[in-house]
Each structure stands twice: as structure tokens, then as C-alpha cells.
Design a protein around this nucleic acid. Structure first.
Lengths: 339, 339
DNA sequence: ATCAAAGATGACAACGTCGACAACGTGTTG
DNA sequence: CAACACGTTGTCGACGTTGTCATCTTTGAT
């Protein structure tokens, strides 16, 4: 691999001058500049990051720790958002996956230290409470899609489940629905609480009473091995004498099961019953017919803006607020009809 | 950050001796070893990879290029497999996502060169023909989930779609099905051809004729914006006077639509019609009720073993075969009943 | 023409690590 | 006791880059 010295030799200048050209430093004569540029092009010289890192003692690198990237695959978009930010800003990212194992998490931090990362992004695949186990490492960090358990807690960026659920509920109400079945997420997830609370607050605000809504628990138990009651509960809701005109589901995968339950009973969607989801998990929300009305988790932006925020922190700029929430925009498709 | 010299000073030895301890070199007295180890533990010293890289001119790093990681999210497991191999073998991986843009691909190669990667894994999210655009870069590389268009082609590792489809078809036949509807994948995908061919070969082998099977095209058009006929075709198959007893689908997302079509017509699965998929895309295959019988794409292993193979190549060992295929194991659940 | 200021370029060192080699200590052999 | 082998430890330099400072060249004002 050709080095800066080799380029310098070929261009008949000093290595320092090549460095100036590469880094667009001022005070290089135009002809020198082009001559060096030409040699760089001819030799295919690319600066060695490791050497830069050594010289400047800045690695320009951030680490990403993810937990269960495979279980909820769509949230891989968080990682994509981070990467795009990094590529656009000349940073390097190092990725580590823990699969939820503590020992792998500690191992990852060690690997990160070996690369002298300047900050870490702690990404969870479910919106939840997290407590990064970084051993004795102390570095700028940003929690993405989760928040710290501790009070003196750390900077984070999260989806606004409350707003998403509120907007979705308002939309459902605006379509005239007055009997609503609600299938709750696993209470272990942060989103479960917020979505449910927002739903209740919004229907109350609209003047509906307890008898107008019917809330069922769709999933429970430890994440990864939860018990799934969605199909059964959806059926039960739809078998009621005065059945709901709409089923609101904790997420899109639950909506899928609600579809199966409704169709299995001979009901048509959305003519006989409307269904809405949450997350906009597209392999499901777009595969369903009719396509699913839902609220989109801003995964990509969580990553992109989370990386941006971490970078500010590394640069020493204070954050406007410790926690930033991003909207979950409503995605209107055709699974929810007017009553 | 504490350096090897600082550790050496505190332990009262030379930096070289600390280096010996860190790298488990022989010929260090036991008491020296423990003394140095203690100082390392106390100071939290971690060797600097950038400096190692400089000294040894070996980066110990491989690059991963992926195309559309977000569209078919489950295949992120390939990346997880690679990472796990790398973590287990002390290698670093650098990840770049192109979203299918050529300019981003070239940019990624440049970034890789800056980090002096020793080899590259070119990962596609669909099983397809690929031609890596690496500019003038020439490095050991391995195609994962794709193969080269060129004849003098490059090493690759791929799923065995043929075997998967054959085993699935045999399974269906063994359950007594003799009228089979088949929904084809987008012909643009490599798997489409292989799965379809295997299906035809296997039914013929079993003595079925052309009139016993009915093959429909489920999807077509450019990847990312294809036209989707699955729902319509599935309905059409099921409306036939002598309707198939089983629907074999190109993948699990198509199976999902087949479910919706069947249920929408008042048919019960698997009593009235059996359905099988392909891929084992679990957010779908496990969410469906009854759960889906399918063949699993060995994504994780493609990544893990692909990394392993690339590493052999880097080390200069010849590969037993240029292309390696991995089995797609049958996953029997409950969506396919005996006739 | 003269000189100062500004612009352009180069020499050199240092970042952290480890290979090559030198040097030292201890025990063994003749 | 000399000679040697071997085990243990240390010195030094180089990897590729860029910051610091020095040097040389050009420009422009007098």
C-alpha cells in the first residue's frame, strides 16, 4: 500500500506538503496542488486511518452496542441511520451485538477501548429501560430507543409512543368508531405503558366511558419467550355480542394476528371490523391486505439523530435536553374505515 | 488513556516486557508476569489497535458491504453471524451499507482502504447475481448470498434453495398432497429459479403430471418496487373447481398473503387448505396461526462461515471449492396437514 | 533597490507497539 | 574454573501521519 512518503517522492515535494493537499490546508500553490493530486490519483493513495489516529490521538470512531438485533429485525434501521450519519460526516463506526448477554457486553466495551472509540451508542431493539454495563469505562454515550434506569441518568433519544398512540386513537375516533377493542403489548416494554396510557387519555378526552372500550393483554412474560394471547383475545373481542368496530393493536405483529382471527371468523376488513397497528413494520404492514393503518416508529431517524447528538457531546457541546423524543407519524392506509 | 510505557514504568520493567505479557510470549518469569498483570488490571490498560496495526501493518479487519439491509430485515442475521465469528477470533469488522447505490459502494471501498482492511464480505439481502464494484481495488473477498455474474468468478457462499425446495416438496407429497398450487417468487431472484425448478423436478419424480400442479407468478418487476399478485393469484387458485389441497409459496411473506386469501374465503388452515412458505422469516412464520411450515434460510451460518472462509483466503489457504452452499433445513410446524 | 510581511515548503519529532538484536544472569558441562 | 547454553530482560527503531517550527520564496510598499 502506497504511503504519503511515496506520493511525496513521486511528486517531488515533502511528505508534509502532500499532507497539506490531502487535508485541504491553505497555503499550497495551485500548481503544486494539482501535481500532488495527480500523483494521488495515479497511485490510488488513501490516507492510513490508523496512522492518523496515532498521530492525532483521535480515532474519529464511535461504537454501537445493540442487544437483540435479530429478534425485531426492522429496528436494524437504527443502525442504518447511524451509519449514514457517520458516512456523511467522516466518522467510523464499530458495531457489537450482545444478544442480551452481559459477558458479551463487557467484551464489547473492551474491544471499543482497544479502538479508542470517542463515544458509544447504546441501542436497544425494544423501547425499554436499560442499564449499560460498561464496567469502569466512562465515555460520552447516548441511549437510543431506551432510557436509563438510574435517576442521574444519561442522555437518550426515544420514540414518542404517547404522541403516536394519541394520534392514532384520534384518527380512529375521527372515523366515527365508538366501540374500541385494545390489545396491549407486553407490559415489560416501555411502549406498552405509554401507548396504553395515551389511548385511555384520548378516548376519555373524546367523552367515551369505560364501557366503550375493552382492553386485553396480548402478550406477557419475559422478552424472547413471552406467552402470546393475541389471537385468542382478538377472537374473544370479536365474538362479543356488541363487538367493537375497531381493534387497536399494540404493534403490527399483533395486528397480523387480529387479521387472522377476524378473517377466520368470516369478518371482512375493514367493512366488518377495522384494525390498526403500531410500528409500521413493513414486511407485515404492507403485506397485509388491506394494507395496515399504523404509526411509524422513527427508527432511521433515531439512529441518525442519535449519532448526531452523540457527536455534539463528544465535541463538548451541551445538549439542549437530556432526552429527545421523536414523533411516530401516523401512516394511513386502508385497514380502518369510517363506521 | 494509559499506554504500554506507563504500565512498564509502574511495573518497573521495560515496555517490551509488558508487550510480552500482553501477547503471552514465552520466557517471562512467573513473578514478572503477575506483577505486570496486576498493573494492567489496576490501570485498565488495553492495547491500542491503531498502534498495533501500524507496527505490524496488519489491520486484522474485514469489511462488510451490504445492499438493502432494511428491506429484508431478517437477513441482518448474516451480519450477526459475521460479527460473532469476528468477535470469537479477535477480528474487527467494518460495516458499510450501500442501499443499492453505486456511488455509496465506491465510497465504501475507499473507506475500507483507509482502514487497510484485509478482505471484504459482499453481502446481498436477496439471493442473487451480483457484481461488486470495487473500483480498482483488489483484495480477498467473499460473496455471501449471491454469486458473481462473471465466469472467472469469485468465491461465494450461498443457501441451497434447490435442496430446501426439494425437501419441502417431498414433505408436502409425503403428507399425501396431490393437487398443488405453487406461487412463484419474482424471477429476478436467484432463489425463484432454483426453488421452482426443484419443485417441478420433485413432483415429477413423484409421478405427478402437469395437470396436478398449477404454478402462478406471485411477484414481478424491479426489486424494491415490484408488482405483487400474490393475493389475487392465491384467491384464483383457491376458487378453482378442483382446488389445490396445498399452496406452496415462494417465501413466507407470500404465504402470509395466501393465508389472508384463504381465510377471507372462509377456508380453514390447514383443514381446508395447507400452506407452506420458504425462508422462515420468523416475525411472520411464527406470528401466523397456525404457525407456518417452511424451510429456513441459514442466514446466520452464511455469515459465520462466510467470514471463516474469507479468513482462510486472507491467510493464503486455498478453498476446497469456490462456491459453498448451505442447507435450508425444513421447519415443520402446523400449517400443512395430511390430506 | 530594499525590506518587511505574507505565502509556500520542508525538516523533524512523536503518537503506541513490537520485531530484531543485544545484554545480562544462572546453571550446566567438561 | 572456563566455556557455553539458555532463559530473561532491555534498547532501539520503524510503521504513516501531522503539528511545530524553521527556512526559503514571493509580493508589495517604500
Amino acid at each position: 500500500m502506497v504511503s504519503i512518503k511515496e506520493v511525496a517522492r513521486l511528486a517531488g515535494v515533502s511528505d508534509k506538503t502532500v499532507s497539506r493537499v490531502v487535508n485541504r490546508e491553505p497555503n499550497v500553490r495551485a500548481d503544486t496542488f494539482t501535481r500532488v493530486q495527480r500523483v494521488i490519483a495515479e497511485t490510488g493513495y488513501v490516507p492510513n486511518m490508523a496512522a492518523r489516529h496515532m498521530r492525532s490521538s483521535r480515532s474519529n470512531t464511535m461504537g454501537i452496542i445493540t442487544d437483540y438485533i435479530s429478534t425485531t429485525p426492522y429496528s436494524g434501521n437504527i443502525v442504518r441511520g447511524i451509519q449514514d450519519w457517520a458516512a456523511a460526516n467522516g466518522r467510523t463506526v464499530l458495531l457489537a451485538n450482545t444478544n442480551g448477554h452481559l459477558d458479551k457486553e463487557l467484551e464489547s466495551w473492551k474491544m471499543f477501548m482497544a479502538h479508542r472509540i470517542e463515544g458509544a451508542l447504546y441501542v436497544t431493539m425494544y423501547h425499554r429501560i436499560a442499564s449499560p454495563e460498561r464496567g469502569s469505562v466512562t465515555l460520552p454515550s447516548m441511549l437510543i430507543n431506551c432510557r436509563s434506569a438510574k435517576e442521574e441518568s444519561e442522555a437518550s433519544i426515544e420514540p414518542d409512543d404517547f404522541q403516536g398512540s394519541r394520534d392514532l386513537t384520534r384518527f380512529v375516533l375521527a372515523r366515527g368508531h365508538r366501540r374500541i377493542g385494545y390489545l396491549r403489548l407486553n407490559p415489560k416494554l416501555l411502549g406498552a405503558e405509554e401507548r396504553h396510557t395515551a389511548f385511555r387519555a384520548t378516548v376519555r378526552e373524546a367523552g367515551l366511558g369505560e364501557s366503550d372500550i375493552d382492553v386485553r393483554l396480548g402478550m406477557e412474560g419475559p422478552i424472547g419467550s413471552e406467552r402470546n394471547h393475541v389471537y385468542r383475545e382478538a377472537r374473544s373481542l370479536l365474538e362479543k355480542a356488541n363487538r367493537p368496530s375497531v381493534l387497536m393493536c399494540g404493534n403490527d405483529e399483533m395486528a397480523l394476528q387480529a387479521y387472522l382471527a377476524a378473517l377466520g371468523m368470516g369478518l371482512q376488513i375493514p367493512q366488518d371490523v377495522s384494525i390498526v397497528g403500531f410500528d409500521d413494520f413493513q414486511p407485515v404492514s404492507l403485506a397485509l391486505k388491506p394494507e395496515l393503518t399504523t404509526a411509524a416508529l422513527p427508527y432511521y431517524d433515531l439512529g441518525y439523530r442519535g449519532a448526531e447528538r452523540l457527536d455534539s457531546t463528544i465535541a463538548g457541546k451541551p445538549l439542549a435536553s437530556r432526552t429527545l423524543t421523536l414523533d411516530c407519524p401516523l401512516v394511513v392506509r386502508s385497514s380502518c374505515a369510517p363506521v
